[in-house]
Design a protein around this nucleic acid. Structure first.
Lengths: 214, 214
DNA sequence: GTCTATATACCGATAGAC
DNA sequence: GTCTATCGGTATATAGAC
């Protein structure tokens, strides 16, 4: 319908730019990332990149928005299923870690942000982080009410869960490098992260009354 | 004894440079940090900074070396005390988190490094990280042997402990910012981190036979 | 929508006076 | 040991042709 003069891979171009930017921001953080390098990685001209996404800050915001869209989508699916608090928390941990493993740029960017005290984080992103916190805290309270979980600080518990998930998923390449230095140590597989964390944390917050064994 | 022509705060100058560099690297990561800004923060001339520390990479290595000196010192003290595996792991968690809380630049820099897949990490630093891993893994094995702990993957357990400690200590300013957005949520105090983590993880790896309550 | 060329500012690092 | 001044390179961002 629209009278276009030239080629049309508009949506594709923007996606390619976001993919390349995501990787570059993960590699170097916001301040260390280079727009030239992003354009090079995306295979698009730098001026075209500016035409599509505005500037470096807007590009960063777009990458983060897409990442949180994915997390919230996976989280909504996990929250849809019912079951015990144990089952619900397991599902959330599995969903989060699956997304982080499939899109390793996300945990890496968030780690840069946590390190920088969220200096490049817009209030909107901060609110979306609090949404995730609210979901986990809800399950925790639910588990405490029905005697499945003992009472722990929900913010600390959530941050431990998120922090460990972020680090374990972001660190995969470093684990492989460490494995070369110390061949006698058995470094576990990336796919085991969710199962391990669910097991450890669920045991950690289990009510003393319940004698669980997974 | 030495015939000096001018002022003498040599050691102090170097320390001031390292302190300023530590903060700047924590704020922006290695790639994002600015040497001009470090000199400004340290209150020394940029040329003098180069005279003292060489270049940006050497400066970064010096900061990391000093940070790991502190961690290993605290760790050695914690390992000196005997007691049950439970007591030993508690002591290690307390020691690590006390250092991270007293020197918040360290967890922030390490988070940048983890995010960057250790791209700026010299092999020497990687080995020092493995030293800490070895200490924790030793306590874990000790606890399993004498029936205090159930058997968990030592690398995963260690990375969970370290990852959570890093994030919880690095994130303090962000927690305060989040507390302003959501006043209804009670964000815990920074000093509670070690106690919380020890409680959660010790419950998480406790042997099913032992019915512990802290 | 896509490119080349460039403005403008900044960064890491050094020369050389004192 | 400490400074001023500056080089050479690179960064973000834009103007303007097609």
């Amino acid at each position: 319908m629209v009278t276009e003069t030239s080629s049309r891979p508009t949506a594709t171009t923007r996606r390619r730019i976001l993919d390349a930017a995501s990787r570059e921001f993960a590699d170097w953080g916001f301040a260390g990332a280079r727009v030239d390098e992003i354009a090079l990685r995306a295979g698009v001209n730098k001026a075209l990149l500016y035409y599509h996404v505005g500037n470096k800050e807007a590009l960063y915001a777009s990458v983060l928005a897409r990442n949180f869209d994915r997390v919230e989508g996976a989280l909504a699916d996990a929250m849809a299923g019912g079951g015990s608090a144990h089952d619900r928390l397991s599902a959330v941990i599995a969903a989060i870690n699956e997304i982080l493993r499939k899109h390793p740029d996300h945990p890496r960017i968030m780690l840069h942000e946590f390190a920088s005290a969220g200096g490049n984080l817009e209030p909107e992103v901060l609110e979306r982080m609090l949404t995730v916190l609210g979901a986990v805290a809800g399950i925790l309270a639910y588990g405490v009410r029905y005697g499945e979980f003992r009472s722990t600080d929900p913010v600390m518990t959530h941050l431990t869960l998120i922090g460990a998930s972020l680090v374990l998923n972001a660190i995969a390449p470093l684990r492989h490098r460490a494995a070369e230095i110390s061949p006698e140590i058995r470094f576990p597989d990336d796919a085991d992260v969710a199962g391990f964390l669910a097991d450890l944390l669920l045991h950690g917050i289990a009510s003393p009354r319940t004698g669980e064994t997974t």
